[in-house]
Design a binder for these strands. Sequence first.
DNA 1: GTAAACTGCGAACAGCGTTCGCGGTTTACG
DNA 2: CGTAAACCGCGAACGCTGTTCGCAGTTTAC
Lengths: 214, 214
Amino acid sequence: MVRVSDAPPIWNRPQRGSRGPQATHSRAEIVQAAIGLADADGLDAVSMRAVAAALGTGAGTLYRHLSSRDDLLDLMADRVVGELRPHPGAGADWTEALLGLARLQLGLYRRHPWLIEVLPRTSGFGPEALGWFDHCLGVLAPVPADNAAKFETLALMTGVVTLFARSERSAPPPAFTALDVTAYPNLVVAIGDPGTPRPDLFERTLRGLFSALL
Amino acid sequence: MVRVSDAPPIWNRPQRGSRGPQATHSRAEIVQAAIGLADADGLDAVSMRAVAAALGTGAGTLYRHLSSRDDLLDLMADRVVGELRPHPGAGADWTEALLGLARLQLGLYRRHPWLIEVLPRTSGFGPEALGWFDHCLGVLAPVPADNAAKFETLALMTGVVTLFARSERSAPPPAFTALDVTAYPNLVVAIGDPGTPRPDLFERTLRGLFSALL
DNA sequence: GTAAACTGCGAACAGCGTTCGCGGTTTACG
DNA sequence: CGTAAACCGCGAACGCTGTTCGCAGTTTAC
């Protein structure tokens, strides 16, 4: 489960040495093929054999460029995080700027839904993730708050974005057919008067978060 | 991925028919063995063969009581959600009561860390999950708000609890050795003055959420 | 009493991540 | 300049996974 490897993380390892024939596939090529499969058919479609087949080779070949499937997932995640560039310039209102960053993240999750499953199990921050985090800190620069508070706020902001991304993906509740009235009295009356969901829940939640933590 | 089965969910299916010899293992027994494995060695240790071996039988036997491993995970999740009983009585202050419910949920995640992975992929609400949700609605009964707003708030409360549970499980950040100053300027200065994390982040976040949404 | 329905069981299947040895190719070094 | 080290693609193989299926035996319903 936990990464116990003494080897340096994948981002610090060189792609190839100096000797030997030129590789027919690069690390970036493999990652791109894997992302294509994940975008099209979900994360389960990203098997080593499938990725290799998409590149016209065998599964064993991939291990010349990666040391494990988890490495591949790390690289995939950091690469799509790079799609958040160019990082938008911070305006005068940092709250509005931060909201814009959150919306950008939500868009990324919509483009690559598998990211919701991959990100929580990545082994660490890649260079693009660090760059994004650095940019967020820059937006928060004018805020007079402890750096720990900024870290906490950004972590929770990212987390809340994943919650919304997940809720968008999950199917609507299964219509509650024939609910037992005696067992779930409050639920029954609430179903009878469901009310109307608010369209600005995303912004409202994040604004509440910011005002509570910064 | 998505459950396309026309069969009724596992909770509505009877455990056995009337004919045939008495079964040596019950559905509850299987679920309990699986939970024991998950608590001890994580979710990956819950393979059909391992669960069957813990019960002294073969993997194929389990399919007499369950139709898939996903069914087993559904049952495991709903069963540990039942540990939240007896549901605490609501006091006068609904904010405080709701905070107590959130703390109860966090404790459940600490006792069964695998629940963090299982819950987002369950196929629906089990009877215990419905009971918990019903109780939360009861606590929110005196709040003059739209039922949709209450649904949204409870969903986000549960989500935020999972974020905190996840952050407790994840390893501390890897010490940021030798960070490139030119690439991550804001990060470098923030590391130089890390500040002190706030001990009441959990409560503060949830209070902010409640006041923003209800 | 017969047939239907259920039981545990173990072999089997396809797929998975990963390892390893093979022959061939390119580069670094004495 | 030749030799050795390092890298390449490749395919077979290992152990594991979830799941299916036929077999023989047991209990119940009609």
